[in-house]
C-alpha cells in the first residue's frame, strides 16, 4: 500500500515536472520565434539562395534562368578581373591587417605606460572609428590630391616628388591601405588597452622578482602571452574587415585605374548590381563566404590550441 502511494506520488511529480517543462519550452519557442523567423528569412534563405544562384545563369531583367552547373566557377578561374581582384584584396589585407594590429599594440602600450594625455591620445586615435568612412575618404582624396593635396605639397617643401597617390596603378593600393590603417587602428587600440588593463599587476611584479630585467623580457613573459586572446580576436577581425574593404574603393577609385584597386566586394558589386549578372556574382559571393569561413575556422582552431588558459 505504502509502495503504491509512493509510486503514484512519483508519477504525479514526474508528470507535473514535464508539464512545467513543456510550458517553459513553449514560452521559449514563442520568445525566440521572431528571431528564428527573421534568421531564416534574412540569413539562412539568402545564403542558400546565393549558393543556388551560383549554379544558374540568372540575370536581372531577364525572365527565367537555367542551370549551368559549375560554369560560373570555371569562368572565375579564367576571369582576369577576378584574379586581379583576389590578388589586390590579398595585398591590401596583407598590409592593413598586420600594420594596424602592430601599430595598435605599440600605441596601446605607449599610452598605457604614459601618465599624461591618456584620454587625449585614445580619443585622437579612436576618432576615425566613429567617423563616416565615406566622408573621411573624401578628405583623404583631397589630402592625396597629386597637385593641390597637402601631402604632396608637404613633400614638395622637402624637395621630394610626390606620387599620384590614388591616380596611378602603382600606388593606389598602398594609398588605400594607408586609409585602411588610419581607419582601423583605433578600434584595435581600444581592445588592446582593455586587454592591457586586465593583466594583473602582480604578474609584472612576479616577473621582475623572477629576474625579468628588461622591458622586452617582461613583454615576452607577461604582456604578450596575457594579450593572447585579445590579439587573436583583433587579428581575426582585422583580417575580416580588410577582406571586406569596399567603401574607400567605391568612393575614391571605382576599382581603377585599370583595375589596379579592384577588390573582391567591389567586383561582386559591379557584377551583381551594375552588370546585373546575378548568377556569376553569386559564384563570386560563395568564394567570398568561403574565405570568411576558413578565416573563422582558423581562429577557432588557434583559440582552442593556443590561448585558452583555463
Amino acid at each position: 500500500m505504502a509502495d503504491i502511494t509512493a509510486a503514484s506520488i512519483h508519477a504525479a511529480k514526474a508528470k507535473s515536472r514535464s508539464t512545467a517543462e513543456r510550458h517553459e519550452a513553449r514560452n521559449a519557442l514563442i520568445l525566440s520565434a521572431p528571431a528564428l523567423i527573421l534568421l531564416l528569412l534574412f540569413i539562412v534563405l539568402p545564403v542558400a539562395g546565393v549558393v543556388f544562384l551560383s549554379f544558374t545563369d540568372f540575370e536581372l531583367g531577364y525572365s527565367g534562368f537555367k542551370f549551368v552547373g559549375m560554369d560560373n566557377y570555371t569562368e572565375l578561374l579564367t576571369d582576369r578581373t577576378f584574379r586581379q581582384s583576389l590578388w589586390n584584396t590579398t595585398v591590401y589585407t596583407a598590409i592593413v591587417a598586420p600594420v594596424s594590429i602592430f601599430m595598435a599594440l605599440g600605441f596601446a602600450m605607449l599610452i598605457e605606460a604614459e601618465g599624461i594625455g591618456r584620454s587625449f591620445f585614445r580619443t585622437a586615435y579612436f576618432l576615425p572609428v566613429a567617423s563616416l568612412l565615406v566622408a573621411m575618404a573624401t578628405v583623404w582624396q583631397y589630402l592625396f590630391h597629386p597637385t593641390i593635396g597637402p601631402v604632396n605639397q608637404f613633400l614638395a617643401l622637402l624637395g621630394l616628388p610626390g606620387p599620384n597617390w590614388l591616380g596611378s596603378a602603382g600606388t593606389v593600393l598602398y594609398s588605400l591601405s594607408i586609409i585602411g590603417v588610419w581607419q582601423s587602428v583605433g578600434f584595435n587600440l581600444v581592445l588592446f588597452l582593455a586587454g592591457l588593463t586586465a593583466i594583473p599587476r602582480e604578474l609584472y611584479s612576479a616577473a621582475e622578482v623572477d629576474g625579468a630585467k628588461s622591458a622586452f623580457d617582461r613583454f615576452r613573459l607577461v604582456t604578450w602571452p596575457m594579450l593572447g586572446p585579445t590579439t587573436l580576436f583583433v587579428t581575426t577581425i582585422s583580417i575580416i574587415n580588410a577582406v571586406k574593404v569596399f567603401e574607400t574603393v567605391k568612393t575614391l577609385t571605382e576599382g581603377g585605374p585599370n583595375k589596379s584597386s579592384e577588390v573582391l566586394l567591389f567586383t561582386i558589386y559591379q557584377e551583381g548590381f551594375v552588370y546585373l549578372r546575378v548568377g556569376y556574382a553569386s559564384a563570386l559571393t560563395v568564394v567570398f563566404l568561403a574565405i570568411l569561413v576558413v578565416l573563422t575556422f582558423i581562429q577557432y582552431r588557434v583559440q582552442d590550441k593556443q590561448v585558452h588558459y583555463a
Binding site: F42, I43, L45, P46, V47, G49, V50, L53, K244, F246, L265, I268, G272, F273, V278, A281, S282, T285, F288, L289, L292, V293, T296
Partner: peptide, 10 residues
C-alpha cells in the same frame, strides 16, 4: 559569419 555582402544578391 555571414555579412550583408553575402546575402545582398538574393
Amino acid at each position: 559569419l555571414v555579412p550583408i555582402h553575402a546575402t545582398a544578391l538574393p
